[in-house]
């Protein structure tokens, strides 16, 4: 289990990442264009990876990395697919 110092640091960091995710959410809702929304989604998934890693640190379990890795891969693929859809109106040609 975590001791006081690292536990406190992880809690503060998780709070900061949470605020960062709220910023992304604001951009996601605000727009103004769909490209901004895709960018906000991209940032949101990167922040969520950090949150999962912090959760893993907090619980002292290394199992959360599988989840983080999955989010990283799916996030990249979805960003690429969305950007390509915006560019060409089609994903698989």
């Amino acid at each position: 289990m975590l001791n006081n110092l690292v536990g406190l640091a992880v809690l503060v960091a998780a709070f900061m990442v949470g605020v960062a995710m709220l910023f992304c959410l604001w951009r996601l809702i605000q727009g103004p264009d769909i490209t901004d929304r895709v960018l906000a989604l991209d940032t949101l998934y990167i922040n969520s990876i950090a949150l999962i890693i912090l959760l893993g640190l907090y619980h002292g379990s290394a199992l959360y990395y599988e989840g983080a890795l999955l989010i990283a891969m799916l996030g990249f693929v979805s960003t690429a697919a969305l950007a390509k859809y915006l560019l060409r109106g089609d994903i698989i040609e």
């Binding site: 001791n3 110092l5 690292v6 406190l8 640091a9 992880v10 503060v12 960091a13 998780a14 900061m16 990442v17 605020v19 960062a20 995710m21 910023f23 992304c24 604001w26 951009r27 960018l39 906000a40 940032t43 990167i46 922040n47 950090a50 912090l54 640190l57």
Partner: peptide
């Protein structure tokens, strides 16, 4: 290592916060 881990985690979180703030 306690200090190092705490420092790294906080640095990481502040960069993420600044990045998302830039997005706004």
């Amino acid at each position: 290592t306690d200090y190092l881990v705490a420092l790294l985690v906080l640095i990481g979180a502040s960069f993420m916060l600044i990045g998302s703030w830039g997005l706004v």
